[in-house]
Amino acid sequence: MSIYNKITAGFSLSAAEPVTSGIEDVIYIFNADDIALTYDTNNPLVITDLTATSSAKVYKFEGTNNSFNATSKLAKTQVGPRYTEEIDFNIAGLSVAVKAQLRAMGYGRVKAIVINNYKSGDSAIELFGAVNGLVLTDAERNAADETVEGGYKLKLTNPDKLREPYPPRALAIAHESGPVTYASTLAALEALAV
């Protein structure tokens, strides 16, 4: 009996480029239907292009002092592995505009891109919610919370019963006239950001 997938390589930790925890204090978020994803034909874990619709916008959320976090958790199901993806971040504000964005993230689906502090691998930039999107599941504001100065603590995660079939996808976008690099991927992302 053959198994569905087979491992094809090993790996070892590098002393020259040790793994670094955490993500940068920036998250790119966009409406799930606004950007089409192009996958590598040989590897479904790699996204090679982001194509925006005419009205699409990628919104950039910036924080400080390691205030953002991303998590991917494996869940074994009867039909195979699934992944719960979560992004925690803070918003230092409580204007009507902020509240409108929170409401939109709670009802609509978004996708989010994070930049890992570890830049030596081919997954330095990752997309969360590639298949099923993410929704805002927690938006907590404690006016007396000095850690976020009375702002909101937010959590984006998969909608109920809709985990992702793969771990977060790697973004690897080539420049028009060159190879795929961390810089070319970041430049393509920044070109879409508002």
Rank of each mutant, 00 (worst) to 15 (best):
E140G: 02
K161D: 07
P167Q: 10
M105T: 00
A193W: 13
G106T: 06
V96M: 11
T41N: 14
D160K: 15
K153T: 02
M1I: 15
Y4R: 15
L102E: 02
D88N: 03
A187D: 13
P165W: 02
L74Y: 07
R163H: 08
R169G: 03
V114E: 02
P165A: 00
L134P: 05
E85F: 03
V135G: 00
Y83W: 09
I29Y: 10
G108V: 10
A16I: 15
T157C: 02
V131T: 08
G22I: 01
A143T: 12
G106Y: 05
S12H: 12
S120D: 13
E17C: 15
M105E: 00
S123D: 07
G63K: 12
D49F: 05
G129E: 00
S177Q: 11
G133W: 06
D160F: 05
F30D: 04
K161Q: 11
A187V: 15
L127T: 04
V26D: 03
A56E: 05
Q101A: 07
I113Y: 06
Y107S: 11
L13P: 09
T53G: 15
I125F: 05
E62T: 12
P44I: 10
F11T: 14
K99G: 04
D122G: 07
L94S: 09
D40W: 05
L94Q: 15
E190Q: 13
T64I: 14
T147G: 01
G121S: 06
T147A: 07
A130D: 03
F11H: 15
S12Q: 13
K111H: 00
G93T: 01
R169F: 00
E176Q: 10
H175V: 09
E126K: 14
E126V: 09
